[in-house]
Design a protein around this nucleic acid. Sequence first.
DNA 1: TTGTAAGCGTTATCAG
DNA 2: CTGATAACGCTTACAA
Lengths: 350, 350
Amino acid sequence: MAARRVTITDVAKAANVHASTVSRVLNGRVELSLLPETRERVIAAATRLGYRPSALARGLRLRRTFTVGMLVPDITNPVFPAIIKGVEGAAHARGYHLILCNTDDSFEREASYLRVLKEWRVDGILIASSSTADSTIAELRREKFPFVLVNSASRASDDLAVVPDHRQGVSAAIDHLIELGHRRIGLIAAPQTTMTGQERLLAARATLRRHHLAHEDALVAVADSFSEASGYSAARRLLLDAEPPTAVFGANDLIALGVIRLARELGLAIPGDLSVVGFNDIPQSELFDPPLTTVHVPKEEMGVLAAALLIDQVEGRHIERRRVVLETQLVVRGSTATPTVATTSAMRTA
Amino acid sequence: MAARRVTITDVAKAANVHASTVSRVLNGRVELSLLPETRERVIAAATRLGYRPSALARGLRLRRTFTVGMLVPDITNPVFPAIIKGVEGAAHARGYHLILCNTDDSFEREASYLRVLKEWRVDGILIASSSTADSTIAELRREKFPFVLVNSASRASDDLAVVPDHRQGVSAAIDHLIELGHRRIGLIAAPQTTMTGQERLLAARATLRRHHLAHEDALVAVADSFSEASGYSAARRLLLDAEPPTAVFGANDLIALGVIRLARELGLAIPGDLSVVGFNDIPQSELFDPPLTTVHVPKEEMGVLAAALLIDQVEGRHIERRRVVLETQLVVRGSTATPTVATTSAMRTA
DNA sequence: TTGTAAGCGTTATCAG
DNA sequence: CTGATAACGCTTACAA
């Protein structure tokens, strides 16, 4: 099909030198002594023939690929593109390339991709896949395979990780609702099979408890995934209840948008009849109807830091902080407000 | 750092056979005659040692990597994740893996990534990067390197491509505005360095001409990129004009959202004072304020078809249609309406 | 049915 | 300063 690739030997022949010389010219360090004349001849030949070294052969020989893999649960969730952008930029700047894998939130695909990444001998792996089985991570740890968790941490606190401060963010979101006067606050959690899901629900419950507010089961629904559709379904379980909440915290922005969609269908005004807060501050959050009140997470920065941490590890540099926790910030927009009289009636029952 | 990887020879030793036998057991076709007993011993050894073949070595030997590369201009633009998802699904189903590269709309990065993909000996390349220089594509063509264009086609009509019907989509969008009674229709084009940008502007102009409507320069602004920010800036040039349009067609949804943001800042009601249409139908389009009227493009399907086309080509299968053009469909939501009395005054001047 | 050997394209080491 | 050689880990004729 494609014409035979030109190899280092072809270049060598064309330049009347040995292949090893070509290699030295093309990627030898400067202190190597080479006749300028040879160097020029080699470079000329290489460009004339359009020589492209084989990363395969080189990786095989070097036992290094200058490539990092990244596992993402769902590229369609707008948090991730932002994180990925950060990762890619930082990796690129340090001479690494990124192999991106979309696990579609399936354990099976995740395991399969992890295998593939290892087979490709990537130098390290970034894991943004929140559902990652503990066993999977344990395996990486056991093998001493360099990896860094992004966005969602692991149970083992000594794993390298770059995460937003879930607890602080969630707490700020719920404090905000309470300050507005809400007393019946519904929680739409993310899957409890994920660390992110667990952490955010735990944090939310803790905050409510701190304020001596109800956080009974009737006020909690767990979404099947981090998607809008799942948020919508879960919201049905909450809002169609006899005593619906006056405010809802969604474990992420997509879930919050699902709530908003349902509310709209039910004819509930937001924030008039129902306040909604999300988490992540996805792009265009301020253009939704209503503009989404949410917890801002420095997504791109998170990616940059994670990539840096991974590469530091790969290159054997000293690592000061094994776990980087990034500040989050509540961004109040239109989707939250003081509960109205109509809904405050529900408050009394709380 | 990491413990030495276990190789095929390690497995061979452990199973008391030669490496070639291990290879045969692990990926030989069924018709190969192997003693069941040997087979079992090998498999046992392989699993016990946790053997993972090196894709590097295998790719080097096979001159095939079962990997395809994909160039995406901006992963942050919500059209692409959807396309990527389709690509990845289809590729995965056929046993291929995807290496994703974000070119950030820079020629330089694009060229660099293209080089990298070739160095990794990917079996083929998917190009969704609309700004791709003709010369780049020409080079691929010359080298007979398998590639398929997605979302935006090339000038050369015989290149393999899977694209939406830009002409039909744009025309539907503008027809819609005209049917509503708009006569001063502004165009916010995408960069004219991109094929997509050119095609959509051309189509828009043609449609206006067909209706004998003005499409003078005052009604056209060209955005610097496909982003919301660029749409916003370009919109300033249009809407702050003495005689602003009563409706605007944005070359994509993000640009349209930029227009909406500006309109909101200027206190213009949408669709009351200004109608806006976009292109692509990005996720959550219906949750914006107002819900975005836009041209729906079957994004995931586009990805699936493109991947299939590429792999067919790679595997030497016969290809019936070299260019697949997908139907688009106008989705009318809240951002367009009949021009109000106030703005119809502007109509007369047109 | 299985072992032997060569080679995929590089680069590190050792001579010269 | 540059050439020869071996090895990275795998697959596939060919031989046994």
